[in-house]
Design a protein around this nucleic acid. Sequence first.
DNA 1: ACGATAGAAATTGTCAACAATTTCAAATTG
DNA 2: CAATTTGAAATTGTTGACAATTTCTATCGT
Lengths: 202, 202
Amino acid sequence: MVKESIKRDYTREEICDILRSDLIAGKYRYDQPLREISLAKRFGVSRGPIRDAFLKLTQEGSLVYETNRGVRVHSAIADEERKIMMNMRLELEKYCVSKYIEEANHKDHGELEILLEQFKNACLRESLPEVAERDLALHRHWVTRVSKNLELIWLGLAVRISMKYSRLENFEESIGEHERIVEAILVKNKDGALKALALNVI
Amino acid sequence: MVKESIKRDYTREEICDILRSDLIAGKYRYDQPLREISLAKRFGVSRGPIRDAFLKLTQEGSLVYETNRGVRVHSAIADEERKIMMNMRLELEKYCVSKYIEEANHKDHGELEILLEQFKNACLRESLPEVAERDLALHRHWVTRVSKNLELIWLGLAVRISMKYSRLENFEESIGEHERIVEAILVKNKDGALKALALNVI
DNA sequence: ACGATAGAAATTGTCAACAATTTCAAATTG
DNA sequence: CAATTTGAAATTGTTGACAATTTCTATCGT
């Protein structure tokens, strides 16, 4: 990414988002500690903003914090818990997609199509980290458009689920699944959208 | 509380927990800003740990952060979203209670009985803030015993739901509901526990 | 009296220094 | 040689200072 080569200062939020992508993409091993100083150097800031980002990611569940020992990547989630979380995520997204279909305007639809396009491009490039990131960005779109409250809950679920295994192996199938969801949303076919969503999230 | 009169330094976590209780108890108005300096003085620490606590509570959803403007109490949640969250919370707790019944040992049962007792005392004293706090502590017990992962998700849901209205008005009924849950758990009556839970959470 | 403006006050953002703690490796002892 | 101790290095925890920004207030002009 070009972003990283241009040396400028990053904000808390940007640092948090970048680290989250890295975590989802699997750039760090399970249980690997993340050091404040090295990341501070990488982002060109002091340790303060890094600590802020750590706290946020800890609260989301992708990092674990221990007193006087800093943070490390959260260990793998148990299969059973993963199922519970996926179910919660599905129920949450179903509500959001229903609402989204009722409320979304022309501009939203435009953004949605762009996000789908970016997801498809990432799939075609077969870059797993990018695919994971674009997948989340697409789903996040209809969640955040509907409710900032639910977005927080959703983020915690989605990040944790995605970390387990980036099970987005079959890119072609994944493209098809998402195309069906977006298409149904655009023509306001609520029933079809929810069915397509269920097939994708579970 | 005696805790506050003894002047000593608080840790991040303690500050976070105390502020969370205050928020649930309704000590602050909706949209009221929280100032770093005044809280730093109150807890006898510098602004750093206060900022840490703010970030955690923001992530949980009880506070809202705006750049260069600090945090304020999150405005009331919409009824429809509240329903969705309550449903998610119920599903999550049902799973945890089932697991808890299978896994809990003698020591856990002892803690559970203590927490129930404390809840009942708070009810008898008719102190709404205390009741809200003890209610959360009791439910939190079986969640955290089962999964640290799910606890994070649960906390975000429970705090946000509790803030809307502390609907714990009928103390006697509330005591009965919780007694039935705990009793069923102790005799490992899974079906009864889940039914009692559903009546309480919804 | 009313609105705009400039300056003061209050508040948040960031940093670098220092204290406290943990980690690691070399030296010591049985 | 294994287990323990000791001390140095690395890392986190906390603080106070200063910069940047927002908010408040008093002044000014119409």
